[in-house]
Design a protein around this nucleic acid. Structure first.
Lengths: 329, 329
DNA sequence: TACATTTCCGAAAACCTTTTCAGTTTTTCG
DNA sequence: CGAAAAACTGAAAAGGTTTTCGGAAATGTA
């Protein structure tokens, strides 16, 4: 492995001074076109890449951002993360990955590490849509929160618009002529469960329907199966169920079918999350709400760029979600 | 936001020279204990962290590694990635995340970026256990492959031991007294499918049993359901099925139950992957093989450290996997 | 030709840390 | 007490890049 080329190698090969080479490479003026050409060719020939260490030593941007996630097990953070990485990697930003695993000690450690490395900004990816403590105070670099918003409204946060998503789901069911619509969802301690129930209630009211019953439980297939028994017992004529997650919906569908209900003829089901492995493999495949997590991650990354440029956009931004229609409605 | 402290601020506050401060902070000798103490206190007070740019400019290690993944959609790379990140982040290594999304152009781009940033090493995380083209040639930094091995046997690769894992699954079934064991798995073009079938055949032979039929298909629940029909038709007295993935197993269990077979009384089922959401939520919960992906990632990371220290361990290392017993056997 | 103007180029400083080497102070031992 | 050894400290250089500023060359004008 030969030595890595420096700018003085390039300058020497091109027969100019270091300063001129630098100007040529950075598209500054004060360099004759022909000279610039010679420098560029030399750089090409030596496969020259400026040393980022030397560059950032000058105090300029490090072209590095931190990606701080708590989501070691959960599955929601991953697409957000990849979306963000995509937005950064496309430019010449590099992404430092830090997984705090939901431990605030680890989180502090990583924040210090990132600051020591002089990152230009930080994206914090939450594991749920519940607000989380802000880290932005006195940090010195801009921070953008994705999926899990900051509890400080002055921060920049991006979350899926669960209220609107649920309303969309309900409107879809109403359009299909369903009138007796139940809602089975996760624990009410989750912001996501609350907002989805809220959006559903609002859309029902808007359609002139009574708010249907809400069944709170776990975010699990098991709960979906149990809930099926409860829902069918509470109202044997229920003609649609909106589930707070695809896991719940998958369980519900399974149990309802076992009880002889046809999906979607007797009962239409809408899930939430568009978790492919469940939603597409369920029988029948689930109509569901796709929270567009990759887009959310990318958008958050773009806004971090803006914040680094001093154009921050404070507040909690609700990102549009999408209805994916399959065979369960 | 105040200016970030430099070592000369620390030296000044402690009343010593810059050199002495540096020595004190880096635990070099030639500094009186009391002087060192004063310096450390000053550093603490100013929240001083050495500038990594200046450090790596001296030619030392950058304490940065690249994590190159192709696994944007697949789920296997994620735990490997997190395991690796864990091993690095615990020290003072930083991890640069690059997601090539299976595109070799993007991959090249990222490799150049990583080299330009002078990473100390690279971990390549595959999306399947199929061998992938080596990137190590003339790179100048050590590379370790995790999950998806390099096609160059001189490289350092870590893969789950699928042969042994399948054998374990079969031995488990044999121990339970099962004798007519079928195998339902994914496409034979996958290394994973081939090795799992191979391990299963070997274990059957070892137990003195005829190799059972092998059904090749997709890695999907749907195929599991179809396969159930085929298996039960081909041999109505089958008393155990080893599935090549939890998805297949989940589909198989569902369809077998619908055909009136009791699990595990009539047919015992073993899956593969220990994909919690499927294996634990299936009815009954699935006995399965856990490939220990996080451990694999961590191990790969540790070996990258070793390789950076010049103690590389070439070859494809097969990592132990684990039988997780639930109610399906 | 002499001078003013423009266009280019290069020397040198700055960024921050580590390390070497020489110099200074303290300790030890005869 | 004197000399040698040990312990400690500080000035300076190195590492790669960008930027500023002064100077040189080329061009235009009188």
């Amino acid at each position: 492995m030969r030595r890595i080329a420096t700018i003085s190698d390039v300058a020497h090969l091109a027969g100019v001074s270091i300063a001129t080479a630098s100007k040529a490479l950075n598209n500054k003026d004060q360099v004759r076109a022909e000279t610039r050409q010679r420098v560029l060719e030399a750089a090409e020939q030596l496969a020259f890449k400026p040393n980022p260490a030397a560059r950032s030593l000058l105090g300029g941007p490090t072209r590095t951002v931190g990606l701080l996630t708590s989501d070691s097990v959960g599955r929601f953070g991953i697409p957000v993360m990849l979306g963000a990485e995509d937005a950064f990697g496309g430019g010449e930003m590099a992404v430092l990955l830090c997984d705090a695993r939901g431990d605030s000690i680890r989180e502090q450690h990583y924040i210090r590490t990132l600051l020591a490395r002089r990152v230009d900004g930080i994206i914090v990816v939450g594991e749920s849509t519940d607000p989380r403590p802000s880290i932005s105070r006195d940090l010195g670099v801009p921070v953008v929160y994705a999926y899990g918003p900051s509890d400080d409204p002055e921060d920049v946060s991006f979350v899926p618009d669960d209220v609107e998503g649920s309303a969309t789901a309900i409107r879809h069911l109403v359009t299909l002529g369903r009138r007796r619509i139940a809602h089975v969802t996760g624990l009410a301690t989750y912001q996501a469960a609350k907002e989805r129930a809220e959006g559903a209630a609002a859309a029902l009211a808007e359609a002139g329907l009574e708010p249907g019953p809400v069944f709170w439980g776990q975010w699990s297939q098991r709960w979906g199966r149990q809930a099926a028994a409860m829902v069918l017992h509470a109202d044997p004529d229920v003609d649609a169920v909106f589930c707070g997650s695809d896991q719940i919906a998958a369980g519900f569908v399974e149990a309802a079918r076992e009880r002889g209900r046809r999906i979607p003829e007797d009962i239409a089901i809408v899930g939430y999350d568009n978790w492919e492995v469940l939603a597409a493999e369920s029988r029948p495949p689930l109509t569901t709400i796709d929270p567009n997590l990759e887009v959310l991650g990318r958008t958050a990354a773009q806004h971090l760029f803006a914040a680094i440029d001093g154009r921050a956009t404070p507040g909690v931004h609700r990102m549009p979600v999408q209805l994916v229609i399959r065979d369960s409605t």
